[in-house]
């Protein structure tokens, strides 16, 4: 079977610093990485392929600037068979509607797909909307928050889906799309052989011209949503601070806590 894994290149958010003066993001020296949650999608796709051992293949797909080739390279060094980069200036500013649209078009061009495996969400945009979006454009069923997947050679796939009250067991016909959570697998590390392969392998770059897409559906133009304002979250309450450094101060502070709780009718 043919498994496509859409992966996104994101800034390393834990390294993102905000400039307290201007309230803007300090991008200098922030590394671009594969969305950490997409590593789980790659891993489970590789496991399905290896388990089946029937010539199944895994293809990594990313949409992003030319530098996003590195993300495909990383997927290949983990053991993915091949990759595609979708890159075009016309795609800049795409929201999840337009991103899903283009990725779906790219998956159609890849063709003969059986399973699309997405990460739960990307750590930068953090919407989790692109997986279901791709499925809707391709008219595939989608199962989200998948923590376990089995794809026997005959019959439907068996899935565990995490929901608020517990775990659903699902049966799903292929072709289909899933988004996966961390619990599904432990991502393997890139191998030396994989790294060598990733340097040699040809990664096709598709622009809008190569895809069957309508121009007015691309990039900012094709995006129904618009960002109108960006600002820093304001957090401020008047805090009654009590030093509690020695036994006496601790006694006083603890008494104050009890008084506070009593006044607020919390005890």
């Amino acid at each position: 079977m043919k498994i496509v894994v859409p992966i996104k290149q994101v800034p390393e958010t834990s390294a993102v610093k905000m400039d307290p003066e201007t309230g803007t993001m300090v991008r200098d020296g922030v590394e671009a990485i594969v969305n950490p949650l997409d590593l789980y999608a790659i891993e489970v796709a590789l496991e399905i392929r290896d388990e089946r051992d029937d010539g199944s293949e895994v293809i990594a797909l990313t949409m992003g600037p030319p530098a996003a080739r590195k993300a495909i390279g990383e997927a290949i060094s983990m053991g993915v068979d091949s990759g595609v980069l979708v890159s075009d200036r016309a795609l800049a500013g795409a929201d999840t509607w337009s991103t899903s649209y283009v990725l779906a078009a790219a998956i159609r061009k890849i063709g003969d797909y059986d399973l699309i495996v997405c990460g739960e969400r990307a750590t930068d945009g953090d919407t989790g909307q692109v997986g279901p979006g791709i499925a809707a454009f391709l008219d595939l069923p989608i199962a989200t928050y998948i923590s376990k997947i089995q794809c026997p050679a005959d019959g439907p796939c068996l899935l565990d889906r995490l929901v608020e009250e517990g775990t659903e067991q699902l049966e799903m016909e292929l072709p289909a799309a899933v988004t996966v959570v961390k619990a599904i697998a432990s991502p393997r590390l890139p191998t030396l052989r994989g790294k060598q392969r990733s340097r040699k392998i040809d990664i096709p770059v598709w622009g809008a011209e190569e895809l069957d897409v309508e121009k007015e559906c691309l990039g900012l133009t094709g995006s129904p949503t618009r960002v109108v304002k960006i600002f820093r979250p304001q957090v401020a309450r008047e805090c009654e601070k009590m030093p509690a450094g020695d036994t006496e101060a601790i006694e006083t502070a603890a008494d104050r806590v009890i008084e506070f709780l009593t006044d607020a009718e919390l005890i």
């Binding site: 957090v235 401020a236 309450r237 450094g245 601790i250």
Partner: peptide, 28 residues
């Protein structure tokens, strides 16, 4: 940072403070 949003802030070692609060809560 937490003191920016707290109404009541106790500045000190939690290992010393929490047991005293717990004791007083039990009494109360």
């Amino acid at each position: 940072q937490i003191f920016h949003i707290a109404e009541l802030g106790l500045i000190g070692d939690l290992f010393e403070i929490v047991p005293v609060i717990t004791k007083k809560l039990k009494e109360a």
